[in-house]
């Protein structure tokens, strides 16, 4: 997958590229409106990350331009302006999703994957595989070695998030804010994720999967077979 990151904050842009490039994903970064226009018109990308507030130009115009060039491309807006109006304008311009700054890179990754899955739904299988586990987000089905297992909604979201961000360290905060759809304002403790992780692990092992959930020091967890 080819991805273009249009973001004027260079440190943020490079961190995004660094984080996402570990996947099957080729990331390019531009910092200005004019560079973005040049890239959009001369190269092909599957997905775009667009910052709305660029120094010399409106990100919304870029979104419209992208959609005019390639209606199939996935577009994700990342913006510091988190007003309802901005969000609606962005979606109306043709963006698939809107992510307010600041965000976790793992959450950004999950959003990009979800966007791409929606885009590719017509053409391709939307099931993700991880060894013996396969997960289909649209139908909310999880199979282990071809056998359906039942998970609660939270457990399902947790597993999906883990597999999308496989081999990466996920902090407690990342997992909590993903599970709570980012309503996690002023949460006292993230303890609640432990019980969900414990239950998920138990169900996976019970149904014949290996234990892929690894605790990483006091930081968080990693879903990996390495």
């Amino acid at each position: 997958m080819r991805l273009l990151v249009i973001e004027d904050a260079t440190d943020l842009a490079s961190a995004i590229a660094d984080f996402l490039s570990e996947e099957d994903c080729l990331c390019e970064v531009v910092h200005s409106y004019s560079d973005a226009v040049h890239k959009i018109e001369n190269f092909h990308y599957d997905c775009f990350l667009v910052d709305l507030t660029l120094p010399k130009g409106d990100g919304l115009n870029l979104v419209r331009r992208i959609k005019k060039m390639d209606v199939e491309a996935g577009v994700l807006i990342i913006s510091a302006r988190n007003a309802v109006g901005d969000k609606i304008k962005g979606l109306e311009a043709g963006a698939d999703d809107f992510l307010a700054k600041p965000f976790h890179l793992s959450e950004l990754n999950a959003r990009i994957r979800a966007t791409m899955r929606r885009r590719l739904r017509v053409r391709r299988e939307t099931v993700i595989h991880f060894n013996e586990i396969s997960i289909c987000e649209d139908q909310r089905v999880v199979q282990i070695s071809g056998k359906n297992i039942s998970l609660t909604k939270s457990e399902f979201r947790l597993l999906n998030f883990f597999i999308i961000n496989k081999h990466r360290v996920l902090l407690k905060e990342h997992i909590a804010s993903h599970l709570l759809n980012d309503v996690s304002m002023s949460i006292v403790s993230y303890d609640f994720i432990y019980s969900h992780i414990k239950n998920l692990r138990k169900k996976l092992i019970l149904n014949g999967a290996k234990d892929y959930v690894q605790a990483v020091y006091g930081l968080g967890y990693k879903f990996s077979d390495k």
Binding site: L12, A15, F19, E22, P102, F103, H104, L105, H174, Y217
Partner: peptide, 26 residues
Amino acid sequence: MQTPVAIIQSQLDIMVQRDLNASSAL
């Protein structure tokens, strides 16, 4: 303020992916 916070968060997210010892992780 959003942008610096976003940058700090992204750097942190990258950092935790590196091989860390227990005290750095803390």
